[in-house]
């Protein structure tokens, strides 16, 4: 645990020094007025010139006790519309998978940028939900419409 909290405070500092434009990321406030370092909230802006550009999409990042040996869990809201997001909101991304590309050196900045890239550049080989996956594969028009509708809903999400 020593390592996890030291590292998370380090991440918070790193983020303050340098974070990508339009993003935010911070630990959640607990009922007792402290910040819970193991539980972060972040906003991911859709990339410019993509059908995602109008929204800022909310995610939660949960860090386990043995972070950074084990990766955090990243979640969108339930039923978030994206081919690689499970109905529960869990994101399927190789850098967040212990058995794939997770390394302890991956920072919160790397994670949010990875998520941003995944938004406009889904991985067709890793379906996580039926509606978005089907539309993405077979009905681009429907897919575009749904994504844009969703972007509108998340237009005003901020810190």
């Amino acid at each position: 645990m020593s390592l996890a909290k030291t590292r998370l405070q380090e991440e918070r500092k790193l983020w303050r020094k340098d974070h990508p434009f339009g993003f935010f990321a911070k630990p959640e406030k607990s009922a007792d007025g402290s910040l819970d370092l193991t539980n972060w909230r972040a906003g991911i802006p859709g990339r410019k010139d993509t059908i995602w550009e109008e929204g800022i999409y909310p995610i939660t990042i949960n860090f386990p006790n043995d972070y950074p040996s084990k990766p955090p869990k990243v979640k969108f809201p339930e039923n978030f519309y994206h081919p690689n997001v499970y109905p529960s909101g869990t994101v399927c991304l190789s850098i967040l998978n212990e058995e794939q590309d997770w390394r302890p050196a991956i920072t919160i900045k790397d994670i949010v940028l990875g998520v941003q890239e995944l938004l406009s550049d889904p991985n067709p080989d890793s379906p996580a939900q039926e509606p978005a996956w089907k539309a993405f594969a077979k009905d681009k028009e429907l897919y575009t419409r749904k994504v844009k509708e969703q972007a509108k809903r998340y237009q005003n999400y901020n810190a």
Binding site: M1, A4, K5, L8, Q9, R12, K13, R16, P27, S30, D32, G33, S34, L35, D36, L37, T38, N39
Partner: peptide, 16 residues
């Protein structure tokens, strides 16, 4: 940081 994961004070968190 108090205990396991409670951040109570830092550069831009002076609420407490």
């Amino acid at each position: 940081i108090l205990g396991k994961n409670k951040l109570i004070y830092d550069f831009d968190f002076e609420d407490n």
